[in-house]
Design a protein around this nucleic acid. Structure first.
Lengths: 238, 238
DNA sequence: CGCAACATTGAGAGCCATCAAGCAAAGTGG
DNA sequence: CCACTTTGCTTGATGGCTCTCAATGTTGCG
């Protein structure tokens, strides 16, 4: 199989359409999108598998297609800050050149699309629309971190949890938003390290949202959002 | 005076050398630096004057030269998060395209160098080294926000204050680092909104660091750092 | 001098961290 | 198939840190 043929064949129809609908491909001409897909490679990850490591050279950018990923940053003293939970529609590794500022691993079996950094950025030079999209994505990443900062700096435990649930719900495909069900494959300690709370306080925040009727939890790591409006207000989305 | 002459003459020697020593100009050839300076404009700001506004089109990038600036982001409900206190050696407005995600105003009389966005980014296309520098600066900005997130999420009040003082000290020119004196023109409420604390708790954090002998405060908005090592450990720099 | 703005300090309440115990589900080995 | 362990979640009790409300300095300015 030639490289050319591979670039046409390597993705199934679903992956291909997900990619073309992503923020990265928006407004791209078919020919341009084709050139972008030609340098992409599909990677499969097992649960827990590392995809990138803090401090390593930033040699690729990624788009999650299926599954969930966790991004975190650890300090010398063992403390860590979870930075994001990623799924389809998010981006990974777009920190401009240099080295990765964080590590990422799979929370579930995942498929991600990998773009080697040199080919990707060279393509961005040739396709202005692609470059615009990269810039917009950088902005979205920064905006996300700023929202996160705001939530941790200003909100109480159950409101921080509402903020996370609302964030995850917003990124769901429209079809899945309707039933208001999220899967949370990460542990309580991970959510705590994302929200700047201990695992116990995180657990109590779940209990509070549950007893207040805003959510319902199941034993299969899933949450049903029963009062989206109340969650939105708690999350204080602008 | 022609435009060409202006580009040679508009900065005094001190400003010029500060610019050439900045992260933005590192590794630039003299001719390239000259082209960059040719599109720069010096702006003077009075205390309190707004330099950029959240939501407005991002039409320029800035390098502070003298004075201190405050960057903040406000929510619909009146709450706000102070994002940074900037001085010489920092950057402002480098969020890639789109609109400003934050507002900034002068805490003291300031001079800043302004680069119009279109000319600046077009120059970055022509000068690879400049583009590398912009990428590195974007990385530094993101790294700064991640450090900030970590401090707010994981530290207690007096350690958060130590984190801020250490940050400000690190950015001081070497000559000023020696005497360990900082000027803090911002109010306690501003520092509190930066650290995710109330102004009262911020004040108590100052008192605690003072009684523990780590700092000494004067009435002219200045702080003397008396035990840099203890501050560094509290700030938990990796 | 008096006012306004800001900083400090105090008292009390509330929220979260810590230490600890109990529970449920999944895996392990006999 | 059943103890036994492991892992993760929940809940309780307690203490400490921070927020809130309030009063008292302090500085600078009209």
């Amino acid at each position: 199989m030639t490289a050319g043929a591979r670039s046409e064949q390597q993705f199934d129809e679903d992956t291909r359409s997900r990619l073309l609908a992503s923020d990265l491909c928006v407004n791209l001409a078919a020919e341009e999108a084709g050139r972008l897909l030609a340098i992409a490679r599909l990677r499969h990850l097992q649960t827990g598998e590392l995809i990138l490591t803090q401090g390593r050279e930033a040699d690729a950018v990624y788009l999650p297609v299926t599954g969930q990923l966790q991004v975190e940053r650890s300090a010398g003293n063992g403390q860590r800050q979870v930075l994001a939970f990623l799924q389809h529609g998010d981006y990974l590794g777009f920190s401009n050149g240099g080295r990765f500022l964080y590590s990422a691993h799979a929370l579930t079996p995942c498929t991600v699309v990998q773009f080697p950094a040199p080919a990707f950025y060279s393509l961005a030079e040739q396709i202005p629309t692609l470059k615009d999209n990269v810039g917009r994505i950088s902005n979205l990443v920064l905006a996300h971190v700023l929202d996160h900062l705001f939530a941790i700096g200003q909100k109480r435990a159950h409101a921080r949890l509402a903020f996370l649930l609302w964030q995850l719900w917003l990124r769901l495909p429209a079809a899945e938003q309707a039933n208001g069900r999220l899967t949370l494959p990460m542990r309580r300690a991970d959510i705590g390290d994302y929200l700047g709370l201990t695992l116990e306080t995180t657990s109590r925040a779940f209990t509070r949202l549950r007893t207040d009727g805003l959510i319902a939890t199941s034993k299969d790591h899933s949450v049903e959002l029963r009062d989206l409006e109340a969650l939105r207000i708690l999350a204080d989305v602008r």
